[in-house]
Every structure is written in structure tokens, then in C-alpha cells.
Design a binder for these strands. Structure first.
Lengths: 219, 219
DNA sequence: ACTTTGCATTTTGAATGCAAAAAAGAATAC
DNA sequence: GTATTCTTTTTTGCATTCAAAATGCAAAGT
């Protein structure tokens, strides 16, 4: 039996949390899917104990729903969830932006600028996948530059929870252009280290993102 | 086996999460304390499996630290943690305040006003414990009135993590009076349904709270 | 006396086992 | 043919067991 997929070495539940989160966020496990313990156990060749521990954590994170005696399923992503989550993400990112303006090193800022330029070319080439990935990287880098682990943890949790929505949302060309423009502003504000402005821009950016989703999913 | 202290009805791990969180937040388990699985198992008359599941969740929540093969301990509350957490809580509460101004029913507002009045008398009577409890209730009620479960979850997580600090902080009379004044403003802004103002006041309130803690804990 | 090494004990990580609850299926009544 | 109840199977929750890592201790060496 080939052992490629076997877990390398560290605590299994920890590894499993990461892998399962990946499966969910990447859409391999779709919202609403029932999660059979047995199935995953055989898939990853682990016993039920560490798997169950991992599921508990993911449930706490909001990615799966655990109903007693009825097992786990990937949490559905309702419009209401998005409506709730986005303002919170907006507030967190705004704070991250403010802090980043104070604390980011010049190196980090040019790093983010670089990512931004790459993203701009991806946008020009209409390369959705690459654009999306770079977009995420930029927001992560921004959160990192804020040097606030707590903030980063919260943001990561929520954005992971919401990232799945991108499979619903085939962003329109118009909105895409607008988002790109907003990103130009983001970088400009960061370079100017204007925390207040960056915070406002980020908040607006997230708000527009939600509006797009709302329109696409069809409220 | 005697069943009196046994957990009533629902999944054990869930119940355990709550109880252990209580122990930690209430200070019965002090920061830095080693958590022996065996000890807790006998205390609650459960086997290690659900207990371990609970510990995983709490670790994820940041209340305990899990080191592989070395067990769990109650996470310490460093000044750095507080410095990180408070701005985030501030941002979340500010958002909660803004939303509450839009969405709270008149009933909720008068409910909060009532809590506020009770808190004021507790303050007049120098009843720290009652003041603290009412203060927490007010902030919870505010978060509830925002009608955003995601926001509420995040806020609850962080404030639980930080609430333990109150055992360090013997609030000074001066700061106490200032906090009370800020609360007057909070209620005023809420009654006026002035979201922007409430947000700013809450942010400042949290900032001052942090400054107090910083002074009390040292450095 | 202090450090180091080997062994025993303890404690954790993961697997298996068992009982209860739910789901699925079969048989009967209508 | 449908609905209902009863049985069978599956799945989950928890306890127990097994294995490996870590800790404590004691004896030997410096």
C-alpha cells in the first residue's frame, strides 16, 4: 500500500485539523456535505480518536456543525452568515491596517507593494485564480505587518470561514475593476502610512465585497 | 459509581468545555497551572476521551496551551497578550455598538439603561463584585443587541480570554470613576442611537481599560 | 559534591471495544 | 399502494487498552 498520504510526524489531531480545514476551505468538502468519521478515518488511515478531536476544533471554529448522535457536516454558508461575518472582518482588517501603518517595516511595505504589482498583472491578464491567491496574500501580509497575533488569529478564522464563498461568486468584470482600484488605494494609504485612511478604505473594500456576493448569490 | 456529580444531559465534551472555561475564567485554575488529565477525569468522573476533546477546543480558544507529550497548562496572561487583545476587543465592541444603534429594540435599550442604573448604584456603594458583573452584563447586552452572532462569538472568545486579568487589577478609585463616566456616555450615545459616537466611546473605553491594566500589572 | 547514565514510573497520544442512539430496511396492517 | 411498526444495521459517544514519550530517581563515574 502506498504511504504517500500517511501523516508525517507530529500530533495527528493537529495535522488533521489543518488538512480538514484545507478540504473545507478549498471546497473539496462542500457546504452541507455529511462527514463520515469512518470514511475520513480510512482515507487518512487514522483511528477515530484524533479525527474526532479535530472535528471538535473545527466545529468550534464554525467550519463544521456537530449534531449529537447524528455526526458532523460541513457548515452551510448562508447569506446571513456572510452578512454577519463581513462587517466583522471589515472591522478587524481596518484595525490591522491602522496598526500596520504604525508598525510595518519599510521592507514589509515594499513586499506588499510587490504582491500588489503582481496582482495587477494577474488582473490585466484576467487570471482569476492567480488574482485571488495574490489578493489573499496581500491581506495576510497586511495582517502580519500589524504584529498582533490575536488579531491575526481572529481574522484567519473568519476569512477561512468565508473564503469558501468564492466558489459561489464569479466576480463580475465591473466589480473586479473596482476591487483593483480599491487595492491601489490600499497600497497608497499604506505607503503614506495613513492609518485612518487605510482603515476606511479596507472597511469599504470589505463592504463592497459583501455587496457583490449578495448580488451574485441572489439574496 | 455515584452519579450525583455526573454530567446531566448532552455531550460530555461540550459540557466539559464550558466547565473548564468557567474554572479558568473564574480563576479557579490560575494562569500557568498544569492541568493533569487524570486529576480532572476523577474530579468530573469522566474518561479521558471527552476531556481531551475539551482541552483541544480550549487550546484552540487560547485558554490553555498544549505541548506535545507534556500536557496542558492554563495559558499565561502576559502584558503582551493584553496589549494585543484589547485593541481587537475595542474594534469588535465599537462595531457592536454601531450595529446596536441601528438594530436594538427600544426594549433592549431600556433594559441596558436599567443595568446601567443598577451599576451606578453598585459604583456608589463601592461594591466591586456587583459592579464588575453588571459591567460585563451591559457589554454582553450591547453585543446581543447588535444581532450579529459572529461578532458575538468573537467578542465572547476574546473577553473570556482577558476577563481573567481582573484578578490582577484592583481598579483604582480614580479610574473607576472615569469608567463610570464613560459608561454614562455609552448609554447616552445608545439612547440617541448615535452609532458613530458610541463606537468611538467604546473604543476609548477599552483603550483606557488597557491603560489601567498596564499600570497595575507593572511596567 | 556534582554530573551523567540507565532504569522504573508516570503521563500523554492513539487505537480498540462496547453500548446506546439513529438510520435503514423488512414485514405487516390498512 | 401506502403507512406503520418492528427488526437489523450503521454510526456515534464514551471507556478502556496499548504504546511511546517524558519525567523522576538512583547508582556510577568524574
Amino acid at each position: 500500500m502506498s504511504r504517500e498520504t500517511a501523516i508525517p510526524r507530529r500530533s495527528l489531531h493537529d495535522e488533521l485539523v489543518e488538512r480538514l480545514r484545507g478540504l473545507i476551505v478549498e471546497g473539496d468538502l462542500a457546504p452541507g456535505d455529511k462527514i463520515s468519521e469512518k470514511e475520513l478515518c480510512t482515507a487518512y488511515e487514522v483511528s477515530r480518536t484524533p479525527l474526532r478531536e479535530a472535528l471538535k476544533v473545527l466545529a468550534h471554529e464554525g467550519l463544521v456543525v456537530l449534531t449529537p448522535h447524528r455526526g458532523a457536516q460541513v457548515s452551510k454558508l448562508t447569506v446571513a452568515d456572510l452578512e454577519d461575518a463581513f462587517p466583522v472582518i471589515g472591522a478587524l482588517e481596518a484595525l490591522a491596517g491602522e496598526l500596520a501603518c504604525e508598525r510595518a517595516t519599510d521592507g514589509e511595505i515594499s513586499e506588499i507593494t510587490l504582491l500588489h504589482l503582481k496582482m495587477r498583472t494577474a488582473w490585466k491578464n484576467r487570471d482569476r485564480a492567480k488574482y485571488f491567491r495574490l489578493n489573499q496574500q496581500i491581506h495576510e501580509a497586511l495582517a502580519l505587518a500589524a504584529r498582533n497575533p490575536v488579531l491575526d488569529q481572529m481574522r484567519g478564522m473568519l476569512s477561512g470561514r468565508v473564503a469558501r464563498a468564492r466558489y459561489y461568486a464569479n466576480i463580475s468584470a465591473v466589480r473586479w475593476d473596482q476591487a483593483m482600484k480599491e487595492h491601489e488605494e490600499i497600497v497608497a494609504a499604506l505607503k503614506a502610512r495613513d492609518g485612518g485612511r487605510l482603515g476606511r478604505v479596507l472597511k469599504a473594500h470589505l463592504r463592497h465585497k459583501l455587496e457583490t456576493l449578495r448580488a451574485v448569490i441572489g439574496d
